[in-house]
């Protein structure tokens, strides 16, 4: 077992621990910290697998933007409400049972599926360095790229609309 494999297992264990802590912690800020550690461990897994570009963007976008926004909002909304005292809803037992069933079903289907089929003649393995990846990305998937920019514009307009409607209902 090389040190690379050990590191992948270590990051996997950290991600799993972060996920479990997310369900158990009481304060939303602790949940956010657990999620940040889970995301950083996943970025470590991607880096160990050689997919550097996804690892860097995971930290940049998820930890550096999405989780910063989440931590900011948790800071702002530190209301002492009943959800601090009673963490779990009425669905605790059915939820856990269903989760275990789902994980079991997915695991069994994965074991039964076996190795995926690699199409013959698919060409060389793709390079996940920044320049070859971005050239391939924009050569074949430029339409998806443009559509995501439309999605982002829609998200900006929607966010402004929500904030303005909230302001109108306040006054």
């Amino acid at each position: 077992m090389t040190i690379d494999q050990l590191l992948v297992y270590f990051f996997g264990a950290c991600a799993l621990l972060g996920g479990v802590l997310m369900l158990v912690a009481r304060h939303p800020m602790r949940v956010a910290l657990a999620l940040i550690s889970c995301m950083l461990s996943l970025a470590g897994i991607y880096a160990m697998l050689g997919v550097h570009v996804v690892a860097v963007f995971q930290v940049l976008i998820y930890v550096g933007a999405v989780m910063v926004f989440m931590v900011y909002v948790i800071m702002l909304l530190d209301v002492r409400d009943p959800s601090f005292v009673r963490r779990y809803s009425r669905m605790l037992l059915p939820g856990v049972v269903l989760g275990a069933l789902l994980a079991g079903a997915l695991g069994i289907s994965a074991i039964r599926l076996g190795a995926p089929v690699i199409q013959p003649g698919a060409g060389a393995a793709p390079s996940y360095l920044v320049q070859p990846f971005s050239v391939e990305f924009l050569r074949e998937y430029w339409l998806h790229f443009e559509l995501t920019s439309v999605l982002l514009v829609a998200a900006v307009v929607a966010a402004i609309a929500i904030i303005r409607s909230g302001r109108r209902s306040d006054g």
Partner: peptide, 28 residues
Amino acid sequence: LSFVLFALGLVGVMVRRNALVMLMCMEL
């Protein structure tokens, strides 16, 4: 690992009461 994390996230959305925590489980 991916399946277990997905199941954990789904259980989190169903089980937790805080709205922000449910959002974070969706991110998971």
